[in-house]
Protein backbone atom coordinates (compact mmCIF):
# COMPACT_ATOMS: atom_id res chain seq x y z
CA UNK A 1 0.00 0.00 0.00
CA UNK A 2 2.73 2.48 0.95
CA UNK A 3 4.62 1.76 -2.22
CA UNK A 4 1.48 2.47 -4.27
CA UNK A 5 0.88 5.64 -2.26
CA UNK A 6 4.36 6.93 -3.07
CA UNK A 7 3.83 6.15 -6.77
CA UNK A 8 0.50 8.00 -6.93
CA UNK A 9 1.78 10.96 -4.91
CA UNK A 10 4.83 11.17 -7.16
CA UNK A 11 2.61 11.15 -10.23
CA UNK A 12 0.38 13.96 -8.94
CA UNK A 13 3.33 16.06 -7.83
CA UNK A 14 5.05 15.56 -11.18
CA UNK A 15 1.90 16.71 -12.98
CA UNK A 16 1.81 19.78 -10.77
CA UNK A 17 5.50 20.46 -11.30
CA UNK A 18 5.07 20.34 -15.07
CA UNK A 19 1.77 22.20 -15.33
CA UNK A 20 2.29 24.60 -12.39
CA UNK A 21 -1.46 25.14 -12.08
CA UNK A 22 -1.22 25.38 -8.30
CA UNK A 23 1.64 27.82 -8.38
CA UNK A 24 0.33 30.00 -11.18
CA UNK A 25 -3.38 29.97 -10.33
CA UNK A 26 -4.21 28.74 -6.83
CA UNK A 27 -1.52 30.74 -4.99
CA UNK A 28 -2.39 34.04 -6.71
CA UNK A 29 -6.08 33.35 -6.09
CA UNK A 30 -5.43 32.88 -2.38
CA UNK A 31 -3.47 36.14 -2.28
CA UNK A 32 -6.41 37.96 -3.88
CA UNK A 33 -8.72 36.55 -1.21
CA UNK A 34 -6.39 37.78 1.54
CA UNK A 35 -6.45 41.24 -0.02
CA UNK A 36 -10.24 41.21 -0.33
CA UNK A 37 -10.63 40.29 3.34
CA UNK A 38 -8.43 43.27 4.15
CA UNK A 39 -10.65 45.54 2.07
CA UNK A 40 -13.82 44.12 3.61
CA UNK A 41 -12.63 44.68 7.18
CA UNK A 42 -11.07 48.09 6.58
CA UNK A 43 -7.60 49.33 7.36
CA UNK A 44 -7.92 49.21 11.16
CA UNK A 45 -4.79 47.25 12.22
CA UNK A 46 -6.28 46.08 15.53
CA UNK A 47 -9.32 44.55 13.90
CA UNK A 48 -7.25 42.87 11.19
CA UNK A 49 -4.87 41.45 13.76
CA UNK A 50 -7.74 40.03 15.82
CA UNK A 51 -9.22 38.35 12.75
CA UNK A 52 -5.93 37.30 11.10
CA UNK A 53 -6.02 33.63 12.14
CA UNK A 54 -9.59 33.12 10.97
CA UNK A 55 -9.05 34.93 7.69
CA UNK A 56 -5.95 32.86 7.02
CA UNK A 57 -7.78 29.58 7.52
CA UNK A 58 -10.84 30.53 5.49
CA UNK A 59 -8.48 31.51 2.68
CA UNK A 60 -6.70 28.17 2.98
CA UNK A 61 -10.06 26.41 2.80
CA UNK A 62 -11.07 28.26 -0.38
CA UNK A 63 -7.71 27.53 -1.99
CA UNK A 64 -8.00 23.92 -0.83
CA UNK A 65 -11.27 23.59 -2.73
CA UNK A 66 -9.54 24.69 -5.94
CA UNK A 67 -6.70 22.26 -5.33
CA UNK A 68 -9.13 19.39 -4.77
CA UNK A 69 -10.97 20.28 -7.99
CA UNK A 70 -7.64 20.20 -9.76
CA UNK A 71 -6.70 16.87 -8.18
CA UNK A 72 -10.01 15.38 -9.38
CA UNK A 73 -9.70 16.95 -12.83
CA UNK A 74 -6.32 15.27 -13.31
CA UNK A 75 -8.02 11.87 -12.97
CA UNK A 76 -11.18 12.73 -14.90
CA UNK A 77 -9.36 13.94 -18.01
CA UNK A 78 -8.42 11.24 -20.52
CA UNK A 79 -10.16 8.59 -18.39
CA UNK A 80 -7.32 8.62 -15.87
CA UNK A 81 -9.70 7.13 -13.34
CA UNK A 82 -10.16 4.01 -15.41
CA UNK A 83 -6.42 3.85 -15.83
CA UNK A 84 -5.96 3.96 -12.08
CA UNK A 85 -8.53 1.23 -11.62
CA UNK A 86 -6.88 -0.99 -14.21
CA UNK A 87 -3.41 -0.39 -12.82
CA UNK A 88 -3.95 -2.86 -9.99
CA UNK A 89 -2.81 -0.33 -7.40
CA UNK A 90 -4.24 -0.68 -3.92
CA UNK A 91 -7.27 1.60 -3.45
CA UNK A 92 -6.11 2.67 0.01
CA UNK A 93 -2.71 3.44 -1.46
CA UNK A 94 -4.27 5.61 -4.16
CA UNK A 95 -6.21 7.50 -1.50
CA UNK A 96 -3.16 8.06 0.70
CA UNK A 97 -1.06 9.02 -2.30
CA UNK A 98 -3.52 11.56 -3.67
CA UNK A 99 -4.11 12.99 -0.19
CA UNK A 100 -0.39 13.30 0.48
CA UNK A 101 0.25 15.07 -2.82
CA UNK A 102 -2.61 17.46 -2.09
CA UNK A 103 -1.39 18.05 1.47
CA UNK A 104 2.14 18.82 0.29
CA UNK A 105 0.87 21.41 -2.19
CA UNK A 106 -1.33 22.95 0.48
CA UNK A 107 1.56 23.17 2.94
CA UNK A 108 3.64 25.11 0.43
CA UNK A 109 0.67 27.39 -0.16
CA UNK A 110 0.21 27.89 3.59
CA UNK A 111 3.84 28.99 4.05
CA UNK A 112 3.45 31.65 1.35
CA UNK A 113 0.06 32.76 2.68
CA UNK A 114 1.28 32.93 6.27
CA UNK A 115 4.09 35.30 5.34
CA UNK A 116 1.81 37.52 3.25
CA UNK A 117 -0.93 37.51 5.92
CA UNK A 118 1.62 38.48 8.55
CA UNK A 119 2.62 41.48 6.42
CA UNK A 120 -0.86 42.53 5.30
CA UNK A 121 -2.56 42.14 8.67
CA UNK A 122 0.38 43.49 10.70
CA UNK A 123 0.58 40.27 12.71
CA UNK A 124 4.05 39.08 13.68
CA UNK A 125 4.27 35.28 13.47
CA UNK A 126 4.92 34.13 17.02
CA UNK A 127 4.90 30.60 18.34
CA UNK A 128 6.20 29.16 15.07
CA UNK A 129 6.24 25.61 16.43
CA UNK A 130 2.54 25.64 17.24
CA UNK A 131 1.71 27.37 13.95
CA UNK A 132 3.59 24.73 11.99
CA UNK A 133 2.13 21.79 13.93
CA UNK A 134 -1.37 23.19 13.38
CA UNK A 135 -0.71 23.51 9.66
CA UNK A 136 0.51 19.93 9.36
CA UNK A 137 -2.41 18.38 11.28
CA UNK A 138 -5.12 20.59 9.77
CA UNK A 139 -3.80 20.08 6.26
CA UNK A 140 -3.78 16.30 6.67
CA UNK A 141 -7.48 16.45 7.60
CA UNK A 142 -8.39 18.87 4.80
CA UNK A 143 -6.54 16.81 2.21
CA UNK A 144 -8.11 13.52 3.36
CA UNK A 145 -11.68 14.86 3.37
CA UNK A 146 -11.07 16.75 0.13
CA UNK A 147 -9.73 13.69 -1.68
CA UNK A 148 -12.60 11.59 -0.37
CA UNK A 149 -15.39 13.94 -1.41
CA UNK A 150 -13.54 14.73 -4.61
CA UNK A 151 -13.97 11.05 -5.49
CA UNK A 152 -17.60 11.04 -4.35
CA UNK A 153 -18.42 13.94 -6.64
CA UNK A 154 -16.06 12.91 -9.43
CA UNK A 155 -18.39 10.75 -11.48
CA UNK A 156 -21.15 13.32 -11.53
CA UNK A 157 -21.94 16.04 -14.01
CA UNK A 158 -22.51 18.63 -11.28
CA UNK A 159 -19.07 18.11 -9.76
CA UNK A 160 -18.04 21.76 -9.43
CA UNK A 161 -21.11 22.83 -7.49
CA UNK A 162 -21.64 19.64 -5.51
CA UNK A 163 -18.14 19.35 -4.08
CA UNK A 164 -18.10 22.54 -1.97
CA UNK A 165 -21.55 21.76 -0.57
CA UNK A 166 -20.35 18.35 0.60
CA UNK A 167 -16.85 19.39 1.59
CA UNK A 168 -17.24 22.62 3.59
CA UNK A 169 -19.68 21.50 6.32
CA UNK A 170 -17.56 18.45 7.08
CA UNK A 171 -14.36 20.44 7.57
CA UNK A 172 -16.02 23.12 9.70
CA UNK A 173 -14.37 21.71 12.87
CA UNK A 174 -10.95 21.93 11.19
CA UNK A 175 -11.41 25.61 10.44
CA UNK A 176 -12.60 26.21 14.00
CA UNK A 177 -9.81 24.28 15.69
CA UNK A 178 -7.03 25.56 13.43
CA UNK A 179 -8.20 29.15 13.91
CA UNK A 180 -8.24 28.77 17.70
CA UNK A 181 -4.78 27.19 17.73
CA UNK A 182 -3.38 29.96 15.54
CA UNK A 183 -5.04 32.67 17.62
CA UNK A 184 -3.46 31.19 20.72
CA UNK A 185 -0.02 31.09 19.12
CA UNK A 186 -0.27 34.60 17.69
CA UNK A 187 -1.36 36.06 21.02
CA UNK A 188 1.55 34.35 22.84
CA UNK A 189 -0.70 31.92 24.68
CA UNK A 190 0.65 28.78 23.08
CA UNK A 191 -0.59 26.52 25.89
CA UNK A 192 -4.23 27.24 24.96
CA UNK A 193 -3.64 25.86 21.49
CA UNK A 194 -2.48 22.38 22.48
CA UNK A 195 -5.99 21.04 23.09
CA UNK A 196 -7.06 22.20 19.66
CA UNK A 197 -4.05 20.41 18.19
CA UNK A 198 -5.40 17.25 19.81
CA UNK A 199 -8.79 17.76 18.19
CA UNK A 200 -7.13 18.31 14.79
CA UNK A 201 -5.12 15.12 15.29
CA UNK A 202 -8.26 13.11 16.08
CA UNK A 203 -10.06 14.53 13.04
CA UNK A 204 -7.17 13.83 10.71
CA UNK A 205 -6.53 10.31 11.94
CA UNK A 206 -10.23 9.47 11.74
CA UNK A 207 -10.67 10.73 8.20
CA UNK A 208 -7.41 9.33 6.83
CA UNK A 209 -8.40 5.93 8.25
CA UNK A 210 -11.98 6.05 6.93
CA UNK A 211 -10.84 7.30 3.54
CA UNK A 212 -8.26 4.53 3.22
CA UNK A 213 -10.86 1.88 3.99
CA UNK A 214 -13.80 3.31 2.02
CA UNK A 215 -11.99 4.62 -1.05
CA UNK A 216 -12.09 1.25 -2.78
CA UNK A 217 -15.88 1.24 -2.80
CA UNK A 218 -15.92 4.66 -4.49
CA UNK A 219 -13.29 3.82 -7.05
CA UNK A 220 -15.02 0.59 -8.11
CA UNK A 221 -18.14 2.44 -9.18
CA UNK A 222 -16.64 5.44 -10.97
Amino acid sequence: MWHDAVLVAGKDLRIEWRSRVGLNQVVPFALVVLLLFGLALGPDAGRLRAAAAGLFWVTVLLACLLSVQRSVAVETADAGRDGLRLSGLDAGGIFVGKSAALALQLLVLEVVLAVVAALLYATPLSGIGLLAATCVLATAGLAAVGTFYGAVAAGTRVRETLLPLLFFPVVAPVVLAATKAWSAALSHQGGGGLGWLGLLAIFSVAYVAIGTVAFGALLEDG
Binding site: G155, L166, P173, L176, L199, A214, L218
Partner: peptide
Protein backbone atom coordinates in the same frame (compact mmCIF):
# COMPACT_ATOMS: atom_id res chain seq x y z
CA UNK B 1 -23.30 3.04 -2.70
CA UNK B 2 -21.91 6.52 -3.29
CA UNK B 3 -24.58 8.19 -1.18
CA UNK B 4 -24.35 5.59 1.60
CA UNK B 5 -20.59 6.07 1.90
CA UNK B 6 -21.05 9.84 1.76
CA UNK B 7 -23.70 9.71 4.49
CA UNK B 8 -21.60 7.61 6.85
CA UNK B 9 -18.61 9.87 6.45
CA UNK B 10 -20.76 12.94 7.05
CA UNK B 11 -22.38 11.38 10.11
CA UNK B 12 -19.03 10.81 11.82
CA UNK B 13 -18.56 14.57 11.66
CA UNK B 14 -21.53 15.28 13.92
CA UNK B 15 -19.95 14.38 17.29
CA UNK B 16 -16.69 16.13 16.29
CA UNK B 17 -18.59 19.29 15.42
CA UNK B 18 -20.59 19.16 18.64
CA UNK B 19 -17.51 18.59 20.75
CA UNK B 20 -15.47 21.34 19.09
CA UNK B 21 -18.22 23.93 19.30
CA UNK B 22 -18.93 23.05 22.93
CA UNK B 23 -15.30 23.52 23.76
CA UNK B 24 -15.05 26.72 21.75
Amino acid sequence: KRTAVGALVAFIDVPIVYFSVTWW
